[in-house]
Design a protein around this nucleic acid. Sequence first.
DNA 1: CTGTCAATTGACACAGTGTAAAGTTAATAA
DNA 2: TTATTAACTTTACACTGTGTCAATTGACAG
Lengths: 194, 194
Amino acid sequence: MSSKKNDTRVNILRATWKLLESGQGKAVRMSDIAKRAGISRQALYLHFKTRTDILIATTLYVDDMNGLENRLRKSREANTGHERLEAFIDAWGKYIPEIYNVSKALLAVLDTDAAAANAWKGRMQALREGCHAAMEAVNNDGMLSPNFTLKKAADILWTLLSVRNWELLTQDCGWSQEDYIRNMKQSARTLLVK
Amino acid sequence: MSSKKNDTRVNILRATWKLLESGQGKAVRMSDIAKRAGISRQALYLHFKTRTDILIATTLYVDDMNGLENRLRKSREANTGHERLEAFIDAWGKYIPEIYNVSKALLAVLDTDAAAANAWKGRMQALREGCHAAMEAVNNDGMLSPNFTLKKAADILWTLLSVRNWELLTQDCGWSQEDYIRNMKQSARTLLVK
DNA sequence: CTGTCAATTGACACAGTGTAAAGTTAATAA
DNA sequence: TTATTAACTTTACACTGTGTCAATTGACAG
């Protein structure tokens, strides 16, 4: 099952992960990854076509390791729409710091690398669907704010919960993680729920 | 008054501006700017130390040409805090599309270029002060939402009005400019005003 | 013994930024 | 007039980082 090729692949992803996690924003080069993975730089190209491919694969790997799917699934089990919304914000809000450093590498090339932009877009699509589902649950309870259509409400929630907003609030404004979660719940409730 | 050196400098900034405006996201190289400005690539370095310096100077130049200062000042003349908040959102919201393309070039290197990050931070600091002042006016009317401290309210408004959020809502979610302005006013009011 | 898979070494093309040096041109000043 | 200076040009090159290519090695499977 675990072919040698696959082992090395995972090895590369873990090396990238660790580097992004510890490097604190510094650009990680192919040669850095190779060194950390204990293979030659050229060997990286036996497993991935481009640097961006490695970054993308790493974010997916990290999602996997952290069980993003499960975390979000749990929010779907809530009874009321409002509870579901809160659970969703809670799950995602607690998730962001775990992926932030890795995601940042992808965010950094988003504006210049079409492949990265595409991958990120897809990844955020999942979140967007989660937002939409949560707001739909609120709507089904008849509790959606009359100020917004369902679509607009979902868009706003999605924007509110963006990684860049988390970055702004916790890094630039100095909010604690608790502040962030509490205020996002508060805001979503005030803004979107009747 | 208008030395030859200064003329060329402005010439470079206008060339950069036009390229960013029309290039639609494509990376603008030093050679592109030089060609457009009608000078040699090397001459650029007689006026600016680095590419980032040109980008920074261009954003400042564009702010200047568009009269950002004046636009924001007008919002300060409103009578009530709430009116002031609305005027502020209106002014800034209408301003974003005018600077978006130019700003995007700076945003694109934000995560890799410390000088760019610094410049952007400073530029956003002005907006942040505007947000704080607007919320202070609301607070002085005794109309600040009891859900937030003044500082937190200003932080939220600042985050809400970020260029990245405008980008998300208008580009990814397909909102029109009118949608954006209307919903931002609506949201700020619901969220931050009693 | 042979084939093949994973990886290695070393060389290289390419893009883009930034540096360096020597030469041109036109205005300015003595 | 001649000398000087500022702005700019041309040519060349160093540097970084990505990605490609070809020849080679070592292991191990049939």
